[in-house]
Design a protein around this nucleic acid. Structure first.
Lengths: 259, 259
DNA sequence: ATATTTTTAATTGTAGGACAAATATACTAT
DNA sequence: ATAGTATATTTGTCCTACAATTAAAAATAT
């Protein structure tokens, strides 16, 4: 307890508000060509934007120390609450980190943190769900080049083990699908792509289960299996693999095209 | 000015804290198999998670009215500040909307809002930048199926106009690239894909300009032009288009593969 | 009873005060 | 110089207050 003497809390010491950056704050982003509802941004919105601009304009890099909250609040002529709400957002994105009493530092944002929190089938619009569905399809069809460029014997052995095991199964579960396709993305060496795909997958399943008639084209008996895909990846070319993947996903692609 | 009588501000009326949901709050997410720094979540982090869980578990849909901030703070036994910081995050993601004095409602989140704010080449790690670079490549290579399924005569006419105009140019600017490829994504009818791509593009350019040796393979003179792409899209097949796009992007793909 | 006006209540946005905890720094005693 | 102690710093959290404004309720007029 160091609460003796005439100690003035730090909070109180700064009282005079110098509205240095106030102009910055108050300058409306006036540039709407078409008349729109003029979505008046809240202070928090504006401070968030200003801070991000400030970081990029001043070329802040991960690890760089940031001014403290009081200083920001002063300079911007807003309350600490507003600054904290804005910072809270940036913290969520991984853009800034703050260890208590040590201040805040710039950090490497988490690319997909925001997207991850938002991929909720109940909240997204039909259009967005459809877009996500297709996006995943586009990814699956687009990875073959990378796959061929990056595949290693070890990866192929592991993939073979998976494909071989699944060959015996009458019907593949969702987990089986994830295992095989997940391994594929793993093999790209692209961690973001891998994570991105696995975030999209549940939405993809939801959309397919909810909106598309699975039985329609399932009579197409000559379906390309995971083992087929493996074989083409092992012995074929990138172009052949693309075709194989296209056929493997034919059911979904038909669904996507038809609407 | 209705400030007469013995009006007690709403803020003050609720004092007794019923820690009904306190358990929910205090239950640690204890499930780490490997020993990790035990990233103690802040109250705000926890409330953010709890709120999102609460929304999904109770199947909140866009338009649904949310409890007000006081109530949330009470129930969770935290201050309104903490609740507001958490809500501020969700507001940024478009997940909730709040019109002053009318309360908060669930909203349709903006799929890409979080990602958009974070795509800053100065802040992202080398690995992330490389991942984004490749991601864009994967998208370009993956859209051909959709393109063939969705192309319309009107779109093709517009694309032809662009390709025709660019045929005369000695060198294509960044804007030219955006115009042509942008139109391609536009033709997919997938708004999210379109926006996603245009968010990735600047990072893509940055990575290519900063890290890859452009001159290396540029001697490959038989480059596929935008007009070539157009022609294949018009007269060829999806498979041919994929090959054409692959060749069009060969410079980049070489870069990506080599590292 | 119905329409219009006035009052009240509710709720977000914003400001600002307080303080604990913990760390980095300055200071003091040995 | 070392160890120990006080001080300053800064985030996280809690609290109070109030303006603005709409929705609802009450009062008033038709």
């Amino acid at each position: 307890m160091y609460k003796k003497k005439n100690y003035i809390p730090f909070d109180r010491r700064i009282t005079a508000r110098k509205a240095i950056f106030a102009q910055k704050l108050n300058m409306a982003s006036a540039k709407s060509t078409t008349l729109e509802p003029l979505e008046s941004l809240s202070m928090t919105d504006r401070v968030e934007n200003i801070l991000r601009d400030y970081f990029t304009e001043n070329a802040f890099k991960p690890g760089d120390q940031l001014p403290n909250e009081f200083e920001m609040a002063q300079k911007l002529n807003v309350s600490r609450n507003v600054v904290r709400e804005a910072l809270s957002r940036l913290r969520m994105l991984g853009m800034v980190e703050s260890r208590p009493r040590r201040g805040m530092v710039m950090a490497q944002p988490d690319l997909l943190a925001g997207l991850e929190k938002v991929l909720n089938p109940l909240l997204l619009s039909q259009d967005d769900l459809k877009d996500v569905f297709e996006l995943r399809l586009v990814l699956e069809l687009g990875v073959s080049e990378i796959l061929f460029a990056r595949k290693t014997p070890e990866d192929m052995a592991e993939l073979e083990e998976i494909a071989e095991r699944q060959k015996g199964l009458a019907v593949l579960t969702k987990e089986d699908e994830i295992e095989f396709h997940g391994k594929l993305y793993d093999m790209t060496g692209n961690e973001t792509l891998h994570r991105f795909q696995s975030m999209l997958a549940p939405v993809f399943d939801h959309v397919f289960a909810a909106y598309y008639n699975k039985t329609s084209k399932s009579s197409k008996l000559e379906q390309v299996t995971h083992y087929d895909l493996f074989k083409v990846l092992k012995e074929g070319t990138a172009a052949q693999f693309r075709t194989a993947m296209y056929n493997h996903l034919a059911v979904y692609i038909d669904s996507a095209s038809s609407r």
